[in-house]
Design a protein around this nucleic acid. Sequence first.
DNA 1: TAACCGTGGGT
DNA 2: TACCCAAGGTT
Length: 295
Amino acid sequence: MPRPAAPDLAPAVNEWFADAARPLPWRAAEVSPWAVLVSEFMLQQTQVDRVLPRWEAWIRRWPTPASLAAEPAAEAVRAWDRLGYPRRALWLHRAAVEIVERHGGEVPRGVDELLALQGVGPYTARAVAAFAFGVRVPVVDTNTRRVIARAVDGNAEPAPPSTARDLAAMSALLPESPHEARAFNAAAMELGATVCTARAPQCGVCPVSDRCAWLRAGSPAYDGPRKPKQARFAGSDRQVRGLVMRELRAAHRPVTRAEIMGIWADAVQLERAISGLIADGLAVETGEGMTLPEA
DNA sequence: TAACCGTGGGT
DNA sequence: TACCCAAGGTT
């Protein structure tokens, strides 16, 4: 399925990026691959502004994989605070252990080795390879998908994610030079995050507005398949799990059954949440009560 | 593979 | 208010 010849986006986007890039600390030249990996874990489904303070504190406390691996998982979950999806904290801790055990404490540079780490998927593996090590690989996140959907395909929104298709599309745009490729991976994401946004894109300041297929077509409304609606949060199991985790993080001692029962009226749903957290390894039941995992 | 997994900001 | 969206990954 040949796609239409892609416009040459990289030079203009990279030129724009050189000036417009936000000074995010994990982009600084001196940050370690580990610090980049931590940022990528935290940024999974979580906005930059909420990540910044947690990342700073995390890197200060655990500057290497070994320093994190040496601590109980409970400390990672506490330091994660309210970033959400706390199993990411568990997975990051596990990944640190795997890096120590399998890679001598050094974050691996290859996509395959990175993919084998707990909690590292197609996006994170390539992001670390590209941004921490300068490897020339396509990196595709939700922002890049949207930029390509508009500028190349002429659609207001991307089709449902497909790793193979998305990577092929980005590969077709990626400059040959590793240096330029690395910049373009970051620049495409930045463009999607700050200009080519999901709502109210700022086409007036877009560096590729002169060759954007979507703009050229008159910015037609999206008519493809709708994304599945996210289930409502209020009253959900997610909310209950979050409340239980908040309690476990705050208490530096076992939380009794009676205390747990006080945080949600629906006992059946609360029991389901607790069982799920235990099954996920985010909580453990002891004779004294519930705690965060020490292992 | 579709459903599940937190939390908060923007509109 | 209610809904959409967010540097995804796992099962």
